[in-house]
């Protein structure tokens, strides 16, 4: 197994007597897009700020390519490119000058690299304009450009699609996927937009009240048929018969509640199930198909958003 791009080891943050982040332990692998999901106030931003050394770590550590951000800051941060919250850049300078200024802070970035990054984010035509004239989408691109200048192996994007229009969101998503797949960059994305996360992440960590309560692997749409949840409305008297049939013929376990039977199944199997149940004389008053989204899982895991 390769060395993780980033490791969080018992990471805690205490402000006053309040524990904001209560001990996070997980690894992020190279080439992986890791989503950081959680309601407001869950500690996402605090965690991200600790990852890049903006906030001091109370306990535990963050290791970047094996280097501790606490004791080996310069070596660790060299591998990180980030946008923390909004892509705020110097509005009174041109996009190019912004990149030039940031390039001087890290040895070994050539002018060619700046041009390359500008091209990558598609800002060639507007790069010499002042940033204050940029739209939010253009700023977001410039923000990504500055984060990529030094070829980081870890890219941290806090709310990257915030305030972007749908086409902008799609573009950002494509950049992120490309970086992970082609350049083997580990990308850490935070968001509260669940559907968005589902489309771009490989794994999603769910944070609630400073604790990681679940890590979900996201299935790739092309590889797997999305699971459907089928709900059948039939009298309780028929439940046993139906459940036995489903178990024997299709290998699924149906849950009964009230007049309803609920079970997961692939889309292709739905017609044959209905046919089988009808032939077995199960009285059905309704069949509903619902797709279980990440949102359901999220709400299921997270419960109510209670800020402690």
């Amino acid at each position: 197994m390769t060395e993780p791009a980033m490791q969080l080891i018992g990471l805690k943050k205490q402000i006053g007597s309040k524990l904001i982040v209560k001990g996070l332990d997980f690894d992020i692998q190279p080439g992986e897009v890791f989503g950081f999901l959680g309601p407001n106030g869950a500690g996402k931003t605090t965690t991200i700020r600790m990852m890049v050394g903006l906030i001091r770590i109370s306990e535990g550590d963050v290791r970047i390519q094996g280097k501790s951000i606490k004791t080996d800051y310069k070596e660790a941060i060299r591998h990180v490119g980030a946008i923390v919250e909004n892509p705020e850049l110097y509005g009174f300078m041109s996009g190019y000058k912004n990149l030039l200024v940031f390039s001087r802070m890290i040895p070994g970035i050539s002018k060619d690299r700046i041009d390359e990054v500008v091209k990558l984010v598609g800002l060639e035509k507007r790069i010499h304009q002042k940033v204050k004239r940029y739209s939010l989408g253009m700023r977001q691109r410039l923000g990504i450009a500055q984060a990529l200048l030094h070829n980081p192996s870890i890219l941290i994007l806090d709310e990257p699609t915030n305030g972007l229009d749908p086409s902008g969101i799609r573009e950002i998503r494509q950049y992120i996927r490309r970086l992970a797949e082609q350049e083997n960059v580990a990308v850490i994305v935070s968001s509260h937009l669940l559907s968005e996360m589902e489309l771009m992440c490989d794994r999603i960590g769910i944070l609630k009240n400073g604790e990681l309560i679940s890590i979900q692997q996201i299935q790739n749409a092309e590889e797997d048929t999305p699971a459907e949840v089928v709900q059948i409305n039939c009298p309780a008297a028929h439940h046993e018969k139906a459940q036995r049939l489903l178990q024997e013929e299709f290998g699924v376990t149906a849950m009964a509640s009230g007049e309803k039977l609920t079970f997961p199944i692939t889309r292709e199997e739905i017609p044959s199930i209905i046919k089988a149940l009808a032939l077995a004389d199960v009285e059905m008053y309704g069949v509903a198909v619902e797709r279980k989204t990440l949102e359901d899982k999220f709400l299921h895991v997270i419960g109510e958003n209670v800020i402690e």
Binding site: V52, G53, L54, Y73, K74, E75, I77, R78, V80, A82, V84, E85, N86, E88, L89, Y90, G91, F102, M105, I106, Q146
Partner: peptide
């Protein structure tokens, strides 16, 4: 005020 401090302080310069 500009928020650029977040970009300035995440570079390999102490």
């Amino acid at each position: 005020r500009w928020g650029t401090i977040k970009l300035l302080l995440i570079r390999p310069a102490t």
